[in-house]
Design a protein around this nucleic acid. Structure first.
Length: 268
DNA sequence: TGAATTTGACCCAC
DNA sequence: GTGGGTCAAATTCA
């Protein structure tokens, strides 16, 4: 494995660590919810931590598109079960792009740091809830190919299965964003009765693959983490515009749409 | 009035 | 033929 591939493996490892942090924080949140005493500030803090972790994961995913050769095993469920070296799928660049950069998040939190435009909704066979289709708002202005699909989980209607297809290639700094106040996770959570106990689980088979094949060590992990912190500090102002306040209300719209499912169609 | 969402129609892979 | 994904006109929203 070359240096670049090793760094990417380490980056995935870092994200895996973040996911574990998110899960542990979620458990703390559940414990706090069970406690009847006044722990409002603590709960708020936990929700902010969860939001920060989710943002970090999203930012980590979006900083650098992961090469198809590296994520050739990326898959999610039966839909992408054929993410092997199937020649039929690899003769098209677009299909290759899709099959190689697909991952799924199961979360009660629909928001992320990007701007999405809903372009369709379908009732899926044998599925209780419809699936919504979103594309990047900058698809036509910047040719960004990122899309996502959102569907409620039958087993846990409060949660959504969010499938991201492709990394963002858009540069939100090059467009004139609508200046809006910062939107924080706690505000979004507060705004929706659906959102009570954020729980994030990412299923990425390519991560498991790379865990096995990668040569990363704990010391490597610490070094990368320190580099990420330095990088984040150095680019704080830049990314604040991208991931903090500069973007439009992307997932808020998604949240509204998702809530409409339950309000208008399913009366959950 | 422009942007975003909805939804039926269409396309394509299986 | 069927089902999933996308398109685009109509509608709604801010």
């Amino acid at each position: 494995m070359d240096i670049a591939s090793n760094n990417k493996a380490i980056k995935l490892k870092v994200r895996d660590q973040l996911l574990q942090c998110h899960e542990m924080t979620t458990k703390v949140q559940q414990l706090l919810s069970q406690d009847g005493s006044d722990l409002g500030p603590a709960k708020d803090l936990v929700e902010k931590i969860l939001g920060s972790i989710s943002d970090t994961i999203s930012a980590l995913d979006s900083f650098e598109p992961i090469s198809p050769s590296y994520l050739v095993t990326a898959a999610e469920g039966s839909q992408n079960a054929s993410c092997d070296n199937d020649g039929k799928l690899e003769d098209s660049g677009d299909r290759l792009w899709k099959k190689s950069e697909t991952w799924t998040v199961e979360s009660t939190v629909l928001e992320d740091t990007f701007s999405w435009r809903k372009y369709g909704q379908k009732q899926i066979l044998n599925a209780k809830f419809p699936r919504s289709y979103f594309r990047c708002t900058h698809k036509y202005t910047q040719g960004c190919k990122a899309t996502k699909q959102v569907q409620k989980l039958e087993s846990e209607p409060r949660m959504f299965s969010i499938t991201y297809i492709g990394n963002h290639t858009c540069n939100t700094n090059e467009v004139t964003p609508k200046i809006k106040p910062c939107i924080h996770h706690d505000e979004i959570i507060t705004d929706s009765e659906e959102i009570q106990s954020p729980s994030l689980m990412i299923s990425m088979k390519e991560e498991e693959e790379n865990h096995h094949h990668g040569s990363s060590t704990e010391s490597d992990l610490q070094l990368v983490w320190q580099e990420m912190l330095v990088f984040a500090e150095e680019h704080h102002h830049h990314h604040e515009a991208v991931y903090g306040c500069g973007e439009t209300s992307t997932s808020i719209n998604g949240l509204d749409s998702a809530d409409l499912w339950s309000c208008q169609q399913f009366s959950v």
